[in-house]
């Protein structure tokens, strides 16, 4: 196990160094700074996605689902369009990234609270049911967004388009710092439940039997997950399938079910995937493809592999 970690994190270091210094001499500090900034964005995203997906899969006891499917991404876009329509581009809610970010996060948490309410009210109801509702809602959000977009002033439309395409182009030092603060806050908040996570794997009955308030832990975890997903969505855009790829590789290579192990391993896998994808985009595709599209495609193909393995079981 230790060897696997060493190999994994040496690859991570290699990819990071390659990403930072490839094709520049050291006096181009400006370029290095830009790359560092993008690297930070990728680090934050990797942490958020890994934690969110692995814990979500523990809660659903299903290893090929991801929290991104609950409609967060489309809901995020809808929030942006509605804000734009109601307040205009000059309002503080749009212009100030801090306010916009916080508002979006709060709305998304409320959204997930509503979604999960049914799940907690009636325990016989499968989480898949909630998932299907999330999927339908996301189609609904999507068409509503499209509809509202038609009423937006073409001059302000650029803003929506910017939100729609996932890339590292719209990160800034300020948003990075905010995302970092939010995530740190979330992780600290979730820390006291961390030791209960492994028991959540055992299911509600045993977790309760061992003295863990399952419902409360799951509720806090889902709230945390929704913050993390929102942060990563706001940071680099829709990346639905990254989480599935990360968890799939992790479960394949790691032979321990403890979250401490899986999460730290998954983080490395996510880093390698995201950084190399970004590297390819910058060098090979010359910024023609967006990060989200590339990574989704890659993760998507892997998802298909998992899915058909699951179906033929």
């Amino acid at each position: 196990m230790r060897n696997k970690f060493i190999i994994l994190y040496s690859i991570v270091c290699f990819v990071i160094i390659l990403f930072l210094v490839h094709g520049v001499s050291f006096n181009h500090s400006f370029i290095i700074f830009g790359r560092l900034q993008r690297l930070c964005a990728l680090l934050l995203t990797a942490a958020a996605i890994t934690y969110a997906t692995l814990v979500f899969q523990s809660i659903t006891t299903n290893k090929i689902l991801t929290p991104s499917l609950m409609g967060y991404e489309h809901f995020y876009l809808l929030i942006q369009v509605v804000l734009l329509l109601l307040c205009g581009a000059n309002s503080i809610l749009i212009a100030s990234k801090t306010f916009n970010f916080l508002l979006a996060a709060v709305l998304m948490i409320l959204y997930s609270a509503l979604l999960y309410r049914g799940f907690f009210k009636n325990r016989n109801k499968k989480l898949y049911f909630i998932l299907l509702i999330g999927l339908v809602l996301s189609i609904f959000f999507h068409s509503t967004t499209q509809f509202l977009q038609m009423r937006i002033d073409p001059n302000e439309y650029a803003y929506v388009q910017q939100a729609m395409f996932s890339s590292l182009g719209r990160t800034s030092v300020a948003t990075l710092f905010m995302a970092f603060a939010l995530m740190l806050f979330t992780f600290i908040g979730l820390w006291r439940y961390f030791k209960y996570l492994d028991l959540i794997n055992l299911g509600r009955n045993y977790a309760r039997g061992l003295g863990v308030n399952y419902d409360r832990v799951v509720r806090w975890q889902l709230a945390g997950i929704s913050i993390l997903v929102s942060v990563s969505t706001a940071l680099i855009g829709p990346i639905t399938f990254v989480g599935i790829f990360v968890s799939g590789i992790t479960y394949r290579l790691v032979t321990k079910a403890s979250h401490r192990t899986t999460i730290s391993f998954g983080f490395g896998v996510a880093l390698i995937l995201l950084i190399s994808a970004q590297f390819l985009i910058e060098r090979l595709f010359n910024y023609k493809q967006s990060l989200g599209v590339l990574v989704n495609l890659f993760g998507g193909v892997y998802f298909m592999f998992l899915l058909f393995k699951f179906l033929r079981k």
């Binding site: 090929i64 499917l69 898949y128 049911f129 999927l135 493809q289 599209v293 495609l297």
Partner: peptide, 30 residues
């Protein structure tokens, strides 16, 4: 699969569609 979780299969179907969509978008962008 005659009797797998009936709600899970459409979820997978939609995810399958997402993958195909990603491919379409990639071609479109390219």
């Amino acid at each position: 699969i005659v009797k797998k979780d009936s709600l899970l299969i459409p979820v997978f179907g939609v995810m399958y569609g997402y993958v195909l969509n990603a491919l379409t978008t990639m071609l479109g962008v390219h």
